[in-house]
Design a protein around this nucleic acid. Sequence first.
DNA 1: ATGAAAGCGCTAACAA
DNA 2: TTGTTAGCGCTTTCAT
Lengths: 348, 348
Amino acid sequence: MAATMKDLARHTGLGLATISSYFNGGNVREKNRIKIEQAIEELHYEVNEVARGLKTNATHTIGVVIPELNNTFCTEIITGMEDILRSRGYATIVCDCRTDAALEQEAIEFLTRKRVDGIINMPVDPAGSGLREFSKAGKPVILLDRRIQGLDCDCVLVDNRRAVNEAASLLFAQGHRNIGIISGPREIYTASERLKGYADAHKEAGIPVQESLICQGDYTIRGGVSGMISLIRRNPHMTAVIATNYEMTVGMMIAVNELGIRIPDELSLIGFDNLEFARACCPALSIVSQPTMEMAKETASLMLARLGVEGEASSGPEVKYLRTRLIGGRSVSGPLPGAEERKAVGGL
Amino acid sequence: MAATMKDLARHTGLGLATISSYFNGGNVREKNRIKIEQAIEELHYEVNEVARGLKTNATHTIGVVIPELNNTFCTEIITGMEDILRSRGYATIVCDCRTDAALEQEAIEFLTRKRVDGIINMPVDPAGSGLREFSKAGKPVILLDRRIQGLDCDCVLVDNRRAVNEAASLLFAQGHRNIGIISGPREIYTASERLKGYADAHKEAGIPVQESLICQGDYTIRGGVSGMISLIRRNPHMTAVIATNYEMTVGMMIAVNELGIRIPDELSLIGFDNLEFARACCPALSIVSQPTMEMAKETASLMLARLGVEGEASSGPEVKYLRTRLIGGRSVSGPLPGAEERKAVGGL
DNA sequence: ATGAAAGCGCTAACAA
DNA sequence: TTGTTAGCGCTTTCAT
């Protein structure tokens, strides 16, 4: 068995409280400090955070619930958060709920039993049922990337609507008139925002949205592949496509590769996330890049503030809105002569 | 404050032990069971795993220490492990040590204080100093992907040596004679194994290894880019390159893209990991694919066996060796003139 | 089947 | 500054 404070006390001849106060920054006589440190060394003592947590009702552990761990957007953010939180003494328990609302609910209950001090959630369930109980217990909840109607808590969001508006507007400016979009599941907040941005750009350009150019994807690679193929089949005059998350961007690239479509001559493309992937595409892909590191920082800071560790927690819920960047590659064709004369896309 | 068992006891008029036994599968009279379940509902009771952990000296938490969370190879494995472990009631605390041995040591101490029931580690420090203490306390340690000299514990490895041997042999068979390799840090187990495989293939083919064709990379994208560029500069006669992990594969693709090198006409390529990325490359990249899902399963199973949860734990340390697959794309040129010559000679 | 009570390792109030 | 002591919420004998 591991050594306990009692062992340290016995070993040094000191009282329990003295040992405890040593660990909690209290004043300890110099020679006792040395004795304690010697005992720690000899007995290989390590504080038992479980016992401490029971007593103090704080576990120094944050639960993170996300739809999919195997997703660069998520892992980039988690990497950043974990880094900051751990440097402040907080562990993170990451639960990947496989984009399943029931598993998400289960994960939240699981974290509740583990008495985590706070939860950071990129929610799958748009109702956020599980979080309400947790939040009611007075523990902080931070929503990441996606909002939940009627749940008043801190939020770190990206201006997705503007992001896709910018992407589509760029394409319009280059003379494209028939722009396809591989959209995400309608019930997911970011997906609906991104689709709104697509509509906004059309409105601003005075061009009507064509239903056939909108493909409802599912945020997976496979969905990106099949979405791209069906878009191409349905729209011979389509000259450009926007994919609205990283996985579907990969899928889109797989599809054009396997169909042998030349980019940007036959089709212009704009993807999402993962700058490195974009650079590795040939030709380099133009993408909407989300500020994952800032998201990580903002989220961790909000959490630390709510925990009273550092920074000021505002009284009401805070919503942070971050901006994306449009990063140019070589996947968008230069100014086109005119939209009407576009020839049908080859390969089919 | 959250409800406790005491609250349940008071609320039902039962004793504490009865409540406890209800939760631990003991026999409880039917009508009392109903009363308890009602009380749980009304008071929103959730077991306090912290208290339970203090008493039982088991936290149902597994620590996972990896070099980099933002790395698909790692996240694919973690996703799989977390899935299995959580379904058995185990949480995982993931610590990303940023490929830094000191941070890794810190992470292990951190997990020790948190009294995790076991540690799964893809080690950065080839000495594994931190793990020895933990292991000595009788708690299970499982090494993932990389071995540590003189640390007797379960291990889940991939036959990296054979993997790169196969890749290089394929290139030799296609007639390539000057094959470059972007290798990893020498002190990392997998990197040195992969380089050995490269040497093995040369030996088998009866071709001497040329030092200038070996580029010492660092397992990062950036390192892959610069490694590729320097390989090309130094070796005008080089006709093929193998990149030995996913990040450097991405870097390699970025480099050939930006240098405008035509694949496979000017250069044949073989990458590592991430089948989806390989398909999205143009032309599709041939790759060595590691069995991440099986690694996850084997690792989780070993851990569960050691914890006595399911399966049999063998008395001594177990080492699982898994095989890679070589997945063909279009990035390797067909038989070169030299290949036919070789075939004639070799009788193939 | 159920209840009473001890104690897991720690913190914190109080006393010395 | 240091020691004594009472819990934190749970499990687990040991009675009943």
